[in-house]
Computed example of a mutant assay.
Amino acid sequence: MYDLTGFQRDLLYVIAGQDEPHGLAIKEELEDYYETEIHHGRLYPNLDTIVDKGLVEKGQADRRTNFYTLTRRGRRELEARRDWEQQYVADLFEDD
């Protein structure tokens, strides 16, 4: 996961949090988070990158719509990232 951009990591988080989201649903979630428009020229090449890296699988809902799901490797990478983050920020979120 170290070789992903922040945007690509955010794509993984959004895909993990939804049930087989299609590109438009992912785009809308990221636009809400980033509070700016996400262009197709940014979204789809980055989705293709994480598919090519084996972190996400792309399926076809119909002739025009693809959906995305995490692979087992994608889940492991997210878990490893969460564990890595926790070692640095866990104390920030503990109740006193």
Rank of each mutant, 00 (worst) to 15 (best):
Q86C: 06
D62Y: 02
G17N: 10
K58Y: 06
E29W: 06
R63L: 10
T65M: 07
R63Y: 11
L30V: 03
G54H: 06
P21A: 06
R81N: 08
Q18S: 11
Y44F: 13
Q86K: 13
E85H: 10
V51Y: 04
G17A: 07
T65C: 06
V56R: 02
E79H: 09
R63D: 15
T69R: 15
Y44L: 11
L78A: 01
R76P: 07
G6E: 11
E35S: 12
V51N: 07
Q86G: 12
D52R: 08
E77H: 05
E57S: 13
R72D: 14
Y68N: 04
D48G: 12
L47Q: 05
D83M: 00
N66L: 06
E37S: 12
G23Q: 11
T71Q: 05
E37N: 10
T36N: 09
H22K: 14
I50E: 02
G74T: 00
I15W: 00
L43N: 05
Q18W: 05
R76N: 13
R82V: 03
G74C: 00
Y68R: 02
N46G: 03
R64N: 14
H22V: 15
Y44M: 12
L30F: 02
T69F: 06
N66I: 06
L11Y: 03
K27Q: 14
G6N: 12
Y33E: 14
L55H: 03
Y34P: 09
R82C: 02
L11H: 07
D52Y: 03
K58M: 13
I15M: 00
L78C: 01
H40K: 14
Y13C: 09
R72F: 08
R63S: 13
T69K: 14
N46F: 00
K58D: 06
G23S: 14
L70Y: 02
G54P: 05
V51I: 09
R82N: 08
R75S: 08
H40E: 15
D19K: 12
D48F: 04
E28C: 09
E29Q: 12
Q87G: 07
H22D: 15
W84C: 06
G74M: 00
L70G: 02
F67G: 08
R81D: 09
E85L: 12
Y13N: 11
E28Q: 15
L12M: 08
K27C: 06
E20D: 12
E37F: 07
T71M: 03
H39C: 05
I15C: 01
A61V: 15
L12D: 02
G17W: 00
E37W: 07
R64A: 13
K58C: 11
T49Q: 09
E77I: 02
I50L: 03
F67A: 08
D48T: 13
H39D: 15
T5S: 10
R9N: 10
L43E: 07
F67T: 15
D32C: 10
I15S: 02
Q8F: 00
E85R: 10
E29H: 09
R82I: 05
I50W: 01
T65W: 03
V14F: 00
E37L: 08
Y13K: 13
Y68D: 04
E28D: 14
K58S: 15
A61G: 08
E29G: 04
